[in-house]
């Protein structure tokens, strides 16, 4: 059985390495501040530490007042999985285009998924090598998975 690392365990081990990176945590979830997402992911992937070598998926959810990125990560060697979340919103204009650091440098598997999120949810990934629309065509107006998109 894949063990699920609880949010509080994850939060405490992350807080140890990088104080101040956790904005909120409870029994299941852990929220990371968008600024410290990249160092947190590096810590998570560290083979000597938590060893989350495999990025299962990135999801984005539109909570109207903010966007939430959900990273499902997995350690194949130790067979445990974890979830980290990241709330982001653009400054000033809530419905604008929030920017988060791209994790493609850490997990290459994020490449297409981040492009998909940019395409459908309109979250910009800073440092992505090829951030273009992927499912829709260039020049499409809006980001259809947002709650305020009227198709």
């Amino acid at each position: 059985m894949t063990k699920i690392i609880s949010g509080s365990d994850l939060a405490s081990s992350l807080e140890e390495k990088l104080p101040g990176c956790i904005t909120e945590s409870n029994e299941v979830d852990v929220w990371v501040s968008p600024e410290s997402l990249l160092p947190v992911c590096e810590i998570l992937k560290d083979p000597d530490g938590l060893d989350f070598s495999y990025l299962t998926s990135i999801s984005a959810v539109d909570y109207i007042d903010s966007f939430e990125l959900v990273y499902h990560i997995l350690s194949m060697r130790n067979n445990y999985s974890g979830v980290i979340k990241c709330r982001c919103s653009s400054k000033g204009n809530i419905r604008g285009e929030p920017t988060v650091a791209s994790v493609t440098g850490i997990w290459k598997g994020a490449d297409l998924q981040e492009r998909e999120i940019w395409d459908l949810m309109g979250i910009k990934f800073d440092g992505h090598p090829n951030l273009k629309r992927i499912l829709l065509w260039e020049g499409f107006d809006g980001h259809p998975l947002r709650k305020d998109y009227l198709g």
Binding site: M1, S53, M76, R77, N78, N79
Partner: peptide
Amino acid sequence: SPLANMGLEV
């Protein structure tokens, strides 16, 4: 591969 171990306790 040593990179994965399913922990075959089942």
